Amino acid sequence: MAFFGYKDIDKLSGVDLAIYRFIVEHDEQIPYMRVRELARGAHVSNSSVMRFIRKIGYDSFPEFKVSLRSETPIQKPDDPGIQFVQPSAFPADITKIIRLAAQLMVNADNIVFVGIGASAALGEYASRQTSSLGFNSYVVKDPFYPLLPQLRNTSNNVLVAVSVSGQTTELVEMLNDFVNNPEVNIISITSNLESTIARMSRYALTYRATEERIHQYYDLTSQVPCLYIIEALLRELRHQEVVQHRFE
């Protein structure tokens, strides 16, 4: 039984939810608490805590604490200093790949950024900036959005997939509809060159970043290297657009 993987949250009562939220917010302290301390913090009774513990599959509070401790990673002290991105965070040929990716984009009829979660937020920023440069660009943040029907009668499209892991199942399934489509080119921005999404792409813009998660499911991996690539891509896109117009 895994506490953070508990799937029946919708079946919990209001009291149970109060206990659940308190545990999630104080997961590092819970293994050192007593039942009454947890109950006081969640503003419930001791018996409510014990009913909750049994409801989620544990025979006793000590058993629950041992299980929770095994699920909670050891946290390193936060470094208050600014985390600068070094050139070593990018492959040696990143500038060349950015230039090639921009060539695809500058001639595209549609530029669609796709991503989920924090990556979607970066895709939204990139799309807005791309639109400001005069390109037809938008972002898709919902992996179940009917993008295939929307692009069915269009040509010369570029999909820019933003994904830290490059393995997001829903994003892979969306891109799979376009891998063999001659009217769609896929560009990816990811920290994993060997990932599924990178291998599906014509050009993979990659960077190195240490994955960091809390509560196992919340991704706090730095998106700064990704933003560096997006900014470089926008500058190159602007440069190629100016050069192209100069010779028209």
Rank of each mutant, 00 (worst) to 15 (best):
Y6I: 02
K7P: 02
K7E: 11
L12D: 01
L12T: 00
S13C: 00
S13E: 00
G14Q: 06
A18Y: 00
Y20K: 04
E25T: 10
Y32A: 13
Y32E: 14
M33Q: 12
M33G: 05
R36G: 03
R36F: 11
R36H: 13
R40D: 14
R40C: 04
G41K: 02
G41Q: 03
A42N: 00
V44Q: 00
S47K: 08
S47F: 08
S48G: 07
R51W: 07
F52M: 04
R54K: 15
G57S: 08
D59M: 08
S60E: 02
S60Q: 05
F61W: 09
E63L: 08
E63D: 13
K65G: 02
V66C: 02
I74Q: 12
K76M: 11
Q83C: 11
Q83L: 14
V85N: 07
S88C: 09
A89C: 12
A89N: 10
A92R: 13
I94T: 06
K96P: 05
I97D: 09
A101S: 15
A102V: 04
Q103V: 07
V106H: 09
N110V: 10
N110C: 09
I111T: 04
V112E: 04
F113L: 12
F113N: 08
G115K: 01
G117V: 09
G117F: 06
G117I: 11
A118F: 07
A118G: 13
A118M: 11
A118E: 11
A121N: 12
S127T: 08
R128Y: 12
S137F: 01
P143L: 03
Y145I: 04
Y145T: 06
P146N: 01
L148T: 09
L148A: 13
Q150G: 06
N153L: 07
N153R: 12
N153M: 08
T154P: 07
N157L: 04
V158Y: 00
A161S: 15
A161M: 09
V162T: 09
E170P: 10
N176V: 12
E183L: 11
V184W: 04
V184S: 02
N185Q: 15
S188N: 12
T190E: 05
S191A: 15
T196P: 01
I197H: 06
I197E: 05
R199W: 10
S201E: 04
R202S: 09
Y203A: 04
L205N: 05
T206A: 07
Y207G: 02
Y207R: 01
Y207N: 04
R208S: 14
A209G: 03
E211M: 08
R213N: 12
Q216Y: 08
Y218K: 14
L220I: 14
L227H: 06
L227M: 13
E231D: 13
A232I: 06
A232P: 01
R235M: 13
E241F: 10
V243W: 05
V243N: 11
